[in-house]
């Protein structure tokens, strides 16, 4: 069991807070990560979001910059 991943605090943003957080940043300053399934992404997603479905995430972490803030949904 790797406890670290359960003990690291993750902040939650509601939509209003998330929008104001991103308002003064460039599109490439923040990674918006969509971990839903491709069908859900297709129906509608946050503009500029990167799609990595949750089951693939562990294998595709190299596609997300660890130094940039990441907003996950």
């Amino acid at each position: 069991m790797r406890w670290k991943q359960f003990l690291t605090p993750v902040k939650s943003f509601d939509a209003v807070h998330a929008r104001s957080y991103m308002a003064d940043k460039s599109a490439d300053d923040v990674t918006i990560l969509d971990v839903r399934q491709p069908g859900e992404y297709k129906t509608g997603h946050i503009p500029g979001a990167k799609l990595i479905p949750l089951p693939d995430l562990a294998d595709r972490l190299d596609e997300i910059d660890a130094d940039k803030p990441t907003l996950v949904y």
Partner: peptide, 28 residues
């Protein structure tokens, strides 16, 4: 997913509460 990233060394991770349904903004 957010917990997992934080555990993998991602410095700043935010979870969007309410998910996409809660986004209520422009969509692509």
């Amino acid at each position: 997913a957010a917990q997992m990233l934080a555990g993998k060394g991602y410095k700043v991770v935010y979870n969007l509460s309410g998910g996409f349904k809660g986004w209520q903004g422009e969509a692509a």
